[in-house]
């Protein structure tokens, strides 16, 4: 088992994708990336550089036009059902209660939910601090609470991989920080391989084991930075000099790309 966790869990080899073969311009190209099991990798980069594209490839929702993506040594050729996806907007179903929203993936995949599933949903909601809201409708919850429900929903099937596409960008700064730490707590308790896309450099540094910095379109890997700040991290982490160093390094990539080109 230790061996498996050492091995690359998600591997991208010379991956490139072109949405519009007629025009011929690549959205992303020559991406090489290895993610270890239960590693937390954050991705930052300018808008339109292909971060979401990368995420969709791991989920198998998009098959790259060049190179290959494999998970656990098996090439990804179709949608994978062992991933949990959290979107930028919570996209809860307005006609279901919070608990039924959490149970929705099960209901949707298998057509039925058992009593045990319901208990599990309640447990997960409790873990996210939403125990007393499980019977509410989504629009009775604040944005931050809705996003938590979105995360809980992604965790229900206990996926190996958690894919998060700018999950907190719609939230205010305070909520955002709090929910980030909550995510880390959940991740510590239920270790998963996380691919976390964000526009916030400090958020990436605060949460991740490694940060992937991507270039302008067509997106390539500019840098892959090891975040050697010890865990558990807290709001105090932000004040550490190492944090400042690492964010500065990333910022440089983003705001002065020609220096490195």
């Amino acid at each position: 088992m230790t061996k498996a966790s050492e091995r690359a869990f998600v591997r991208m080899e010379q991956v490139g994708h072109c949405y519009d073969p007629a025009a011929g311009n690549m959205a992303v190209q020559q991406i090489d990336l290895e993610i270890h099991r239960h590693e937390f990798v954050a991705v930052v980069g300018p808008s339109g550089c292909g971060k979401s594209t990368l995420l969709r490839m791991v989920a198998g929702l998009l098959i790259p036009s060049a190179g290959k993506v494999s998970v656990f040594d098996r090439q990804v050729t179709e949608p994978r059902d062992d991933v949990g996806i959290v979107f930028q907007k919570p996209t809860l179903l307005p006609w279901l209660t919070v608990r039924d929203n959490v149970l929705f993936p099960l209901k949707h995949k298998y057509g039925l939910v058992t009593a045990a599933d319901k208990v599990r949903a309640e447990e997960l909601l409790a873990m996210a601090g939403l125990a007393q809201f499980s019977a509410r409708m989504p629009d009775e919850l604040s944005g931050g609470m809705q996003q938590r429900v979105g995360i809980v929903r992604a965790l229900l099937l206990n996926p190996d991989i958690l894919l998060m596409d700018e999950p907190f960008s719609a939230l205010d700064a305070m909520t955002r920080e709090q929910i980030g730490f909550d995510l880390l707590d959940i991740w510590t308790e239920h270790p998963k391989t996380v691919l976390f896309i964000t526009h916030s450099i400090s958020e990436a540094v605060l949460l991740a084991d490694r940060v992937l910095v991507m270039s302008q379109r067509p997106g390539t890997v500019l840098d892959l930075i090891e975040i050697d700040i010890p865990r558990p991290r807290s709001s105090a982490t932000i004040n550490s000099p190492r944090f400042a160093e690492l964010t500065a390094r990333i910022r440089k990539h983003i705001y002065e790309p020609e220096v490195h080109a």
Binding site: R56, A59, G60, L61, E78, P79, R80, D81, V83, I85, F87, K89, T91, L93, P105, H108, K109, L157
Partner: peptide, 14 residues
Amino acid sequence: TPEELIELSKSLRA
């Protein structure tokens, strides 16, 4: 219908 939900459905292979 939000595209995300359709992707969710696809990724669940429902």
